[in-house]
Measured scan of single mutants.
Amino acid sequence: MATGGRRGAAAAPLLVAVAALLLGAAGHLYPGEVCPGMDIRNNLTRLHELENCSVIEGHLQILLMFKTRPEDFRDLSFPKLIMITDYLLLFRVYGLESLKDLFPNLTVIRGSRLFFNYALVIFEMVHLKELGLYNLMNITRGSVRIEKNNELCYLATIDWSRILDSVEDNYIVLNKDDNEECGDICPGTAKGKTNCPATVINGQFVERCWTHSHCQKVCPTICKSHGCTAEGLCCHSECLGNCSQPDDPTKCVACRNFYLDGRCVETCPPPYYHFQDWRCVNFSFCQDLHHKCKNSRRQGCHQYVIHNNKCIPECPSGYTMNSSNLLCTPCLGPCPKVCHLLEGEKTIDSVTSAQELRGCTVINGSLIINIRGGNNLAAELEANLGLIEEISGYLKIRRSYALVSLSFFRKLRLIRGETLEIGNYSFYALDNQNLRQLWDWSKHNLTITQGKLFFHYNPKLCLSEIHKMEEVSGTKGRQERNDIALKTNGDQASCENELLKFSYIRTSFDKI
């Protein structure tokens, strides 16, 4: 039985969820670079991206490699990797027998973001014989899940209580170790020597080791999670996991709180800001991140802002960003909400898709409305799209047979046209069989910064309504002859009103 693990408890099935942008060198404390989270699957090609990484700022997932063999891993080693800020997950990587050479110096898994409450997941690794993470000293947050690894031993010899604050939620089941077939031998045991430290858990006094050649490092209890030197002297209180010299914040392997210019500090002093819960960055760093993602459509890219001495992905609820200094300031009234469309555009074809934009005031991208039916549609669209004030790209209304009016965009005031449909149009209306009105132009103002209007096959939309939009939106004169079809717009509506004058002759039985 794995020490510190839980057996036999019912657990939810383990679901495996399925960018080499360097964020800056980590400095003297770390020998390499800070790398983003990685999802490495199918083959070993991307694994080489770990070569210079000291910190993975995010998670590391290595999974679904069915053609790899043990010899493929023999020359692979990433000794610079010290810390993973989120979680480490391995799933069905064939041929991998140990992690001792792959990650010989991995010391800390912070667990800032977890995989279903777990910071370390080893699942269905069919050839893994031992973990071998002999320098792993601290899992700051989260638990361990090690399950269905039929060859995995050296679990009962690990004292997880020396690595985690609590072992109650560890789930370590259905491994070879369960069948008591392992016969784990710690260093020196074969020669009758006791080389590794022994600890007591559940009444068992057991030597602690990761492999037959690597003991588990056990520091004096007084050192807590700070770690200790090879001689057993406690590291500085700002260290986490390990250090090369005692009581020196510049000799830590990793930091308990924050890293700044080669030393570990309790908090980031001005003019620095907390970033990702582990390091200090200056304003320029946060500003660069903001600008890199301002026009990016890459998933996970955030326009970072500053709030409460932190550089964070977005302002919290009730705050909006001051564009001059990136500071989050309290909103006066309802907060603006910028919604970034991942692929640059979004099609609204149902109430469900409209709900995804609920509360958005600025759309960074283009909207395509293609709704053919739905219950209580006008009210639903207004509830979900009615706060949109600005669209950076274009607005396209296409084959939306259920629409009679666009009044559900009740606050839309600006279409920038930074991206144009077919390279020309910022407003595009095609084949809307029941569209009769755009907006009530006596109450609604709309500016279209650039781009043209396109109207074709809107049989109940009168040309007068379209011409009014040209005047109000500032697009009059931009359109070419064929942009607004004269014969297919309003051709099934009563669009022309003329005053009919009647004269009559009164007659009676005795007068003409």
Rank of each mutant, 00 (worst) to 15 (best):
T189I: 09
N42V: 09
P104A: 01
A156R: 10
V200Y: 13
T250H: 09
M65F: 05
T189L: 08
C331L: 03
F258A: 12
Y154N: 03
K129Q: 14
F116A: 13
D72E: 02
N175M: 03
E266S: 14
H226G: 15
L99F: 13
C331K: 07
K310W: 14
P104E: 02
H290C: 14
R74T: 11
F66T: 07
R279Q: 05
V144R: 01
N202E: 05
L131N: 02
K80L: 11
N308L: 12
F275A: 03
V167R: 12
H212V: 05
C215Y: 03
V144P: 02
C196G: 02
C286M: 02
L88N: 01
V55Y: 09
P220V: 05
V55W: 08
N175I: 12
Q61R: 15
I158T: 09
P220S: 03
P336K: 15
N52T: 02
I306K: 03
Q276A: 06
P269G: 06
C286Y: 04
T140E: 04
Q299C: 07
I82F: 09
D178V: 10
S323L: 11
P79M: 04
I40T: 15
E238G: 11
I56P: 00
H290E: 02
G142D: 02
G111L: 01
K224V: 11
Y94P: 13
P104T: 01
S161R: 10
C280H: 00
H212A: 14
L131V: 09
D184Q: 15
N117A: 09
L136R: 01
V200G: 14
G188W: 15
G333C: 10
R162E: 11
K80D: 01
L131S: 02
Q276E: 10
M321P: 02
E57F: 03
C280G: 00
E238L: 05
I201M: 06
K80I: 06
N150M: 04
T85F: 02
Q303F: 10
I158D: 02
I172P: 02
E33P: 11
G37A: 14
E33N: 11
L240N: 12
Q299H: 15
Y259P: 01
P79H: 03
P79E: 12
K294P: 12
P79C: 03
R92W: 15
Y87C: 00
L44M: 10
L136V: 04
G318S: 10
H127S: 12
N42M: 06
D159V: 03
A198G: 02
D39Q: 15
H48V: 10
T140M: 05
Y87Q: 00
G58V: 00
D39M: 15
F78P: 00
C215E: 10
P334M: 11
G227V: 06
C235F: 01
D101L: 14
V108T: 13
L332M: 13
C328S: 02
F103D: 00
I122H: 09
P334F: 04
G111N: 00
A230W: 13
N309G: 12
A230K: 15
L89K: 01
E97A: 07
T194A: 12
V55T: 06
F115Y: 09
L326S: 11
Q287G: 14
P313T: 07
P79R: 08
C223L: 02
S166L: 10
C53Y: 02
H307M: 14
N135V: 01
C235Q: 00
G227E: 02
K67E: 12
C335I: 06
P31Q: 13
C186L: 08
L64A: 02
V265W: 08
C239Y: 00
S112I: 15
H214F: 08
L29E: 09
S98I: 02
P70E: 06
L260W: 04
S317N: 05
D277N: 13
R110G: 08
T194V: 03
V121L: 04
F285G: 03
C234V: 01
P270L: 10
H226L: 09
K224I: 09
V305A: 09
L260V: 09
S284A: 06
L128W: 01
E130R: 13
C223K: 01
I163F: 11
E151T: 01
N295D: 09
L50D: 00
E168T: 09
T157C: 08
C239N: 00
N42K: 08
W278K: 00
P187G: 12
T329Y: 13
T107A: 08
E180D: 03
C186V: 01
Q299G: 14
Q216C: 04
E151K: 09
S166H: 02
S317K: 13
T320K: 06
Y134F: 05
I82T: 07
L81T: 12
L155M: 03
L44W: 10
G227F: 06
L81Y: 00
F258S: 06
N242V: 12
S237C: 14
N150C: 04
C182D: 02
G300L: 11
S213V: 08
F78E: 01
E181N: 14
Y273K: 12
T320G: 14
R263P: 02
P31Y: 09
G318P: 02
R69E: 05
T85P: 00
G333Y: 14
T211G: 07
L44R: 09
R279K: 07
A230S: 08
R162A: 13
D169Q: 11
P270K: 08
L136T: 02
G232I: 03
M137Q: 09
P249E: 09
D288R: 10
V126L: 10
N150G: 12
H59M: 10
C268G: 00
P330F: 12
D248P: 01
E57M: 00
C255P: 00
D169L: 11
R298A: 06
V218S: 09
F258C: 07
V281D: 00
K217Y: 04
V34M: 14
W160D: 01
G262I: 08
F123N: 09
A119Y: 00
F285Y: 02
K67H: 03
C219E: 02
N242L: 11
N295K: 06
L114S: 03
G333N: 13
M83A: 05
L128F: 09
V108W: 08
L76K: 15
P187L: 08
P269L: 06
Q245G: 03
I84R: 00
L106W: 02
K129H: 06
R74F: 04
H226F: 15
T199R: 07
F91C: 15
L96T: 03
R208F: 15
N52G: 09
L233C: 02
Q61L: 04
V253L: 09
M83V: 04
G300H: 13
R41P: 01
T250G: 12
D288N: 04
T85S: 09
L64K: 14
V167D: 03
H214P: 03
K176G: 11
I139S: 01
I62E: 01
R145H: 08
I163W: 01
N295I: 01
R162D: 07
G58I: 00
N242Y: 06
P187S: 06
D159G: 12
N170G: 05
R279A: 12
C215F: 07
C209Q: 01
D248L: 06
I82L: 07
I222W: 15
K310P: 02
P70Q: 06
S323V: 15
G232H: 05
N117P: 14
N309V: 05
D248A: 08
N195I: 13
H59E: 13
N309E: 12
C209G: 07
A198K: 06
E33T: 07
E168Y: 11
G95P: 01
F285V: 06
C286V: 06
I146S: 02
I56R: 15
R145E: 01
Q276L: 06
T211M: 02
V253S: 14
A198D: 08
S284I: 05
D165I: 06
T211A: 12
R141C: 02
H226S: 04
A198E: 15
S98F: 02
G142H: 01
C215P: 12
F116S: 10
G318W: 14
C252D: 00
S77Q: 14
I62Q: 00
Y118L: 06
D184I: 06
G192F: 14
E71H: 04
C286R: 01
K193G: 08
V265G: 03
S296A: 12
K67Y: 04
R297Q: 11
P36Y: 12
K294G: 10
A198Q: 02
F258T: 04
T194N: 13
L88R: 01
T329W: 09
Y171S: 12
G183I: 03
E71P: 09
C234T: 02
I122E: 00
L47S: 15
K100L: 10
C223H: 02
I185G: 15
D169S: 14
V218G: 05
N138Y: 12
L106P: 01
H236L: 01
P187H: 01
P31S: 09
C328W: 01
E124R: 06
A198Y: 05
N170I: 06
R208E: 09
I146G: 01
R297H: 15
E124Y: 13
L164D: 11
D39P: 00
E314M: 05
W278T: 08
H48S: 09
L327N: 08
